[in-house]
Computed example of a mutant assay.
Amino acid sequence: MKLRKVSAASAAVLALALTATACGGDDKDSGSSGGGDKKITIGIKFDQPGLGQKTPDGYAGFDVDVATYVAKKLGYTEDQIEWKESKSADRETMLQRGDVDFIAATYSITPKREEKVDFAGPYLLAHQDVLIRADEDKIKSPEDLNNAKLCSVTGSTSAQNVKDKLAPKANLQKYPTYSACLNGLQTGAIDALTTDDSILAGYASQSQFKGKFKLGGFKMTNENYGIGVKKGSDLKGKINDALEAMVSDGAWEKAVKDNFGPADYKNEPAPKIGDVKS
Rank of each mutant, 00 (worst) to 15 (best):
K45R: 13
I44M: 04
S86V: 12
D79H: 01
P111S: 07
D63T: 10
I132K: 10
I132V: 15
T77Y: 03
L51S: 11
V64G: 00
S86C: 10
F62W: 06
A22L: 15
A104M: 08
Q96R: 15
T41M: 00
T110L: 15
D47R: 02
L125C: 10
D99K: 12
D90I: 08
D90L: 13
S30H: 11
G25M: 14
D63P: 15
R133Y: 08
K72Y: 03
S33W: 10
M94H: 06
F62N: 03
G43Y: 03
R97S: 12
D129T: 11
L51A: 06
I40L: 02
T55L: 00
G34P: 00
R133E: 08
D63I: 14
R113S: 15
V100M: 11
M94D: 11
D26C: 11
R133M: 13
G75M: 05
G43R: 03
T68R: 03
D99V: 08
E92T: 14
K73T: 00
K54T: 00
G58T: 05
P111K: 10
D57E: 11
K39I: 02
I40R: 09
D37Y: 03
D29G: 00
L131V: 04
G61F: 06
V117H: 08
H127A: 14
G24M: 08
G35Y: 00
T68W: 06
I132E: 12
A104Q: 02
G36M: 03
F46T: 06
L131A: 11
I109S: 02
K28R: 12
G58F: 05
T55S: 02
Q48F: 09
A104I: 12
T68Q: 06
R113N: 13
R113W: 12
Q128T: 14
A120I: 09
G52V: 02
D47W: 06
A120M: 13
P56V: 00
G24K: 08
Q53N: 05
L124I: 14
V70T: 00
D118I: 10
L74T: 04
I81D: 07
A67I: 06
G43S: 04
A89P: 03
G52D: 09
V64I: 13
L131Y: 10
D63V: 14
G31C: 09
G121R: 05
G36R: 01
D129Y: 11
Y76E: 03
P111A: 10
P49M: 04
E85Q: 10
G36N: 05
D37E: 04
K54L: 01
V64F: 11
Y107M: 09
T41W: 02
G43P: 02
G98E: 10
Q80K: 06
T77Q: 01
E78G: 00
G58P: 06
Y59W: 09
D65Q: 06
I81S: 04
T106V: 13
D79G: 02
G35I: 00
H127E: 04
I81Y: 07
D79A: 01
K45H: 10
G25V: 14
I132W: 08
D26T: 14
A60E: 12
F46M: 07
E114Q: 15
Y69L: 01
K72H: 02
S108A: 14
Q53A: 05
S86H: 12
H127R: 11
Y59H: 05
Y107S: 14
R97N: 08
A67T: 06
S33P: 07
E115A: 15
Q48I: 12
C23K: 14
K73M: 01
I81T: 04
G121W: 09
T77C: 02
